[in-house]
């Protein structure tokens, strides 16, 4: 049982970290700002999300688990809002784009 849990955790954390790496590479490789926003939000949502889920079993108490989850929720909100704001500003700056 604990072995299974460890395997699942490893997969989750590994995938999460992979998403971070992919997000970074996307931020570097994508040609314009809109696509870069796309790359970034994957790291925020999926990367941190999987990392958080993978780390949850390590929490010593329910409060700690709650804190970890709250981190993710906050980052989720912050990243979506900032993605919207940045894209919105870009749109306003150059209506043709």
């Amino acid at each position: 049982m604990s072995l299974l849990l460890t395997i699942v955790q490893t997969i989750l954390i590994g995938t999460g970290v992979l998403f971070f790496l992919v997000g970074s590479i996307g931020l570097l490789r994508f040609p314009d700002t809109y696509t870069r926003i796309h790359a970034l939000t994957k790291a925020d949502n999926l990367g941190l999300g999987m990392l958080v889920v993978g780390l949850l079993p390590f929490a010593n108490s329910p409060q700690q688990a709650l804190k970890i989850l709250l981190c993710w929720v906050l980052i989720l909100a912050a990243s979506s809002v900032s993605a919207y704001l940045v894209a919105n500003k870009l749109q306003n700056e150059e209506p043709d784009a």
Binding site: A77, Y84, L85, N88
Partner: peptide, 15 residues
Amino acid sequence: NDPILRNFTQRLIPL
């Protein structure tokens, strides 16, 4: 004017 920004900050500040 920006409802998303307004809603977000309304929830963020108390937190």
